[in-house]
Simulated assay, not measured.
Amino acid sequence: MERTETDTPLSRPDRAIGRPADLAAPVLSLRDAALAYGDRVLWRGLNLDIRPGEFLAVLGPNGSGKTSLLRVLLGRQQLTAGSLTVPGCSPRNGGRHIGYVPQQTFQPAHTLLRARDLVRLGLDGHRWGLPLARRAVHRRVDDLLAAVGAAPYADVPVGRLSGGEQQRVRIAQALATDPRILLCDEPLLSLDLHHQRTITGLVEERRRSTATAVVFVTHEINPVLGLVDRVLYLARGGYRIGPPEDVMTSGTLSDLYGTQVDVVRVRDRIVVVGAPDAGTGHSHADGAEGGEDQ
């Protein structure tokens, strides 16, 4: 399928730096980017600039390439075509500029890895050569845990923490290198409404206070709808980019899917009806999909 794109300049002022975000230099750029597995094209012709303080939500059905996009941004997977630059350098050299919150995976209760150990891995787990001074590392880890409200269980094994507590620790780990870009891969999965609000609040606080750009892969836009500047919606090998009010419409999604899709707004929620899940022929009614992605 040929790519489809609606890319509208940011109309919302950047909350963190007090000026339109589209005037700032990008912290990440994709140019004519494509990703395919054999003959199966996930997306192609993708042109995307992400700027300081921007909140980009990435939506789409299973198999549309949302998680694969994050792997590309992390430098863990190569593009089939096109180019990517992260803070003016190649992805491989831009790792310290990027924080990553992976999909939630529960650790066994008997694991010896404590919350503070997981955060420390984000601070110096990638380093070669002489280690950082122990006292400085300990102080930095304590500060990170305190910042996300995880200090009370700093020495508790990760496997004994609740899903919400584990996600707090993973955010602390992602922030260890003071990143300019925060990549979040389905961070709200399996969390109740209270913990969803806590996690989105932590991400938003980081964005507001430091102008960190956020790329937030999610199966459901409603928990972050009030925070989103733009949506990247991936489907059927094509995509749409733009503000939520431009992308999350019946006309736009029907064109993208090649079939009738109805978008209904109920109070402050968006409900998508009739969008077929990739590879299943089923429909969903929540704005995107759940489960694993490529």
Rank of each mutant, 00 (worst) to 15 (best):
R3K: 12
T4E: 11
S11K: 14
S11L: 15
A16M: 10
P20Y: 08
L23P: 00
A25P: 13
L28H: 09
L30D: 10
V41I: 15
N47K: 03
L48D: 03
G53L: 08
G53P: 11
V58E: 00
V58S: 01
N62A: 09
G63Q: 12
G63N: 11
S64M: 07
S64W: 07
S68R: 05
Q78G: 07
L79V: 03
L84M: 11
L84C: 08
L84D: 07
T85P: 06
T85L: 03
T85M: 08
V86Y: 10
V86P: 04
S90P: 00
P91V: 12
N93Q: 15
R96T: 12
P102V: 09
Q103A: 10
F106V: 14
P108L: 14
H110A: 13
L113H: 04
R114F: 05
D124T: 15
R127E: 15
G129N: 06
G129I: 09
L130I: 05
L130P: 06
A133C: 02
R134H: 11
R135K: 10
A136F: 00
A136N: 09
R140N: 05
D142N: 12
L144M: 08
A146G: 15
A147I: 00
G149P: 07
A151V: 12
P152Y: 04
Y153V: 13
V158R: 03
E165V: 05
Q166L: 14
Q167P: 06
Q167V: 02
I171V: 15
A172Q: 03
A174K: 10
T177P: 01
R180D: 14
I181K: 00
H194S: 14
Q196F: 11
T198R: 13
I199T: 01
I199K: 11
E204R: 14
T212D: 04
A213P: 09
V214C: 09
V217E: 00
E220F: 06
D229T: 00
D229N: 03
R236M: 12
G238K: 02
G238L: 01
Y239N: 13
P243Q: 13
P244W: 07
D246P: 08
T249I: 08
T252I: 04
D255P: 00
R265P: 02
R269N: 14
G274F: 06
P276T: 15
H282T: 14
E289Q: 06
D293K: 08
